[in-house]
Every structure is written in structure tokens, then in C-alpha cells.
């Protein structure tokens, strides 16, 4: 019987509550038999997405909520992280790998998410990020 887990969690903008939500997602991916490498990638990317939402989106205002929605099965996981901020334009983030930016301490979170996820996309406003990770252990379907 294929496993499919869908959930929506809402919590105030605090790191410890984000961690609880994150742990639930990791548990769900283990139930769906994702590899440790996939889980490492997910953990890192969720951490970046949630921290961006708490710090930049909701400016650490605990009155503002983070909404985390995820759907996981044996093939892939989709995660949506929404904050209540006014959003941003991800295209305007300077490339941190350019020599002139290499010593700047910020701007690497989105880059890491893009490196570790199969898809990272933002809504038009820039206050919802959608992450997709394919299960590298999943059997490949052939035509």
C-alpha cells in the first residue's frame, strides 16, 4: 500500500516551533523510505526556508504566523512555506559566488536550497516558497 502523507501546520514565528514542524516532515520522509542524502538535503533546505520566513518575512514578529504545508509520498515531497511578510524578489538577491560578493556574510540560503532541491519556486509576491525533492530511492517508471 503506497504511503501518502499530507499536512498543514501553522505556528508562530519562533525557531523552536519551526524545528518541531521540521522534525515531523523528516519523520514522514523516513516513513516513505527516503535516503539519508535526501533527508540531509531536505533538512538543510527546510532550515533555510523557515529561517528566511521567520527572520526576513515575518521579521521575528511572533504575532505573525508561518504556514507549512507538505505532501509526501514514495516518489517526491512538496513543501510550501508561507509567511505574512510583504515578500521579496528572489531575482534581486546578489550572486554570493561572484568574487566581489564572496566575503559578504549573507545571501547563500536560497542558493543552497536551489542546489539541494529539485525545484525551488516563489509565488509572485515572494512570501511563499515551494520546494520539491524527488526520492532518489524511488523505483524509476519506464514508458
Amino acid at each position: 500500500m503506497p504511503t501518502k502523507i499530507y499536512q498543514e501546520i501553522e505556528f508562530p514565528s519562533t525557531c523552536w516551533q519551526a524545528k518541531i514542524a521540521e522534525d515531523r516532515i523528516i519523520e514522514a520522509t523516513r516513513a516513505c523510505k527516503y535516503s539519508e542524502e535526501d533527508i540531509f538535503a531536505l533538512r538543510l533546505s527546510m532550515e533555510e526556508a523557515l529561517l528566511n520566513a521567520i527572520r526576513h518575512g515575518n521579521t521575528k514578529d511572533q504575532q505573525k504566523k508561518i504556514t507549512l504545508r507538505y505532501c509526501v509520498n514514495e516518489q517526491q515531497i512538496d513543501i510550501y512555506v508561507a509567511d505574512e511578510g510583504s515578500g521579496f524578489d528572489p531575482m534581486k538577491i546578489a550572486d554570493p559566488t561572484l568574487p566581489e560578493n564572496l566575503e559578504r556574510p549573507n545571501g547563500r540560503g536560497i542558493m543552497l536550497m536551489r542546489a539541494y532541491m529539485n525545484l525551488v519556486e516563489y509565488n509572485d509576491v515572494g512570501n511563499v516558497v515551494h520546494l520539491v525533492k524527488l526520492n532518489s530511492q524511488a523505483p524509476k517508471h519506464t514508458g
Binding site: 540531509f40 533538512r43 538543510l44 532550515e47 533555510e48 529561517l51 556574510p105 545571501g107 547563500r108 543552497l112
Partner: peptide, 8 residues
């Protein structure tokens, strides 16, 4: 595990 903030 190390985040982008730790890199900063």
C-alpha cells in the same frame, strides 16, 4: 549540519 547563517 551547517546553515548559511553559520557560513556567514
Amino acid at each position: 549540519y551547517l546553515s548559511s547563517s553559520a557560513l556567514g
